[in-house]
Amino acid sequence: MKDGATRDGYGAALIELGASNPDVVVLDSGVSDSSRTKPFGQEFPERFFNMGISEGDMVCTAAGLATTGKIPFATSFACFLLGRSMDQILVSVAYSNTNVKLAGTHSGIAVGEDGPSAQMVVDLAYTRAIPNMIVVQPADWEEARQATHALAEYKGPAYLRLGRGKLKGLYDSSHKFELGKGHVVKKGKEVVIFATGSMLQESMEAMKELQKENITPTLVNISTLKPIDSALIIQLAKEHKAVITAEDHNKFGGLGDAVGDVLLENNIHAAFKKIAVNDQFAETGTAAQLYEKYGLSASHVVKAVKEVLT
């Protein structure tokens, strides 16, 4: 199992795709060193378009390329990719149904010291609300690599949510990422935690603590947020007393709402708790400090599990 940031898994997959799929092209908006598209650009310069700091132009250029049969990965920091290009994504990508992959790196408050203007915590709400758009957030390096391959195969608009920070490896190459499928990381009882992205790592830490007190929740990786794996959520919610969701995103519009919708629409009544950013802008600080202060660290997962059990 390889430790690493999901942006690094993405960059590694792009290099593989560059060699295996001549239709894959990559666009960046002047952050190719941070977003990890630079190696692709060095290896396949004719298929790499650094559009400069103009995300709207980049997204529409990607849409144009897609109409010619290319598979463009348009890449930037999540805050700018979504923030600067919502209209372009709506009209030229989603409504036009062009085969554009939007890769947003540096998502969540885990970005850290650059502060709240760089900490994208509303992108899941944005993208989940867009018709034709699927939404994927991998939990480690390997899953990011596989998800990138899967999105190159999938025909249609997609948002790939990636992170800056190094995450502990959760999967090795024998794992088979499947679009639209949740993955049960650990089967336990009483409480089921549906986590996404970096919150898998926090949840794994929390499970170790809880184990000491003989509390053994089930942990599920929801890496496809849309379409969400309703069948798995329904089944597991029925088998447990309480449901917890965990995400580095605002509490509105992300994983918590997606899981909550599935429960409500299927008339499933379970104790329910969201671990998410509490509808506020965070501040500067290290990722670990921010996770502790803003309610996302392993200790908060432990607390939430205990709360829903009492």
């Binding site: 529409c60 849409a63 030229s92």
Partner: peptide, 30 residues
């Protein structure tokens, strides 16, 4: 909208067409 034969891309929000056209021009070159 491209569901109509002969239409390449959706329109309706001004300012996007030149970028899309340029993306197509880059596709031609590739």
């Amino acid at each position: 909208h491209p569901k109509t034969p002969g239409v390449e891309i959706a329109s309706g929000s001004l300012g996007q067409g030149l970028s899309v056209a340029h993306g197509i021009a880059l596709g031609a070159r590739l």
